[in-house]
């Protein structure tokens, strides 16, 4: 596969390592009343869709950026690639 790195352009997916669902960005608040339940969901519940999926890739043999790649798991079509750090900030990670 080819991943269009937002800074470096098209790169072979072989340069990346894969983590999984981009919802891992949304780590729960440890002080929430139901923190244990939230962390359990966070750690173990995945939608695993046959279709469009937002997922985390690490450019290990490249610039060491974590990316959020929007990819169709059926066709492998990639429709969007963003720096995970930008996504995390935009989606409210505030520390």
């Amino acid at each position: 596969m080819i991943i269009h790195h937002p800074i470096l352009g098209p790169r072979d997916s072989a340069e990346f390592t894969y983590l999984g669902d981009a919802n891992l960005i949304h780590r729960p608040d440890w002080q929430a009343e139901d923190a244990l339940a939230q962390f359990t969901d966070y750690g173990y519940q995945r939608k695993n869709p046959a279709g469009v999926h937002r997922e985390l890739w690490f450019h290990e043999q490249g610039d060491r950026s974590w990316l959020v790649v929007t990819r169709n798991t059926v066709t492998h079509e990639i429709t969007k690639v963003e720096l995970a750090r930008d996504v995390a900030r935009a989606e409210g990670r505030d520390t």
Binding site: A14, E15, E60, Q61, G62, D63
Partner: peptide, 8 residues
């Protein structure tokens, strides 16, 4: 930066 013979 890329991989050559498995080396970054």
């Amino acid at each position: 930066r890329t991989s050559i013979d498995h080396l970054g």
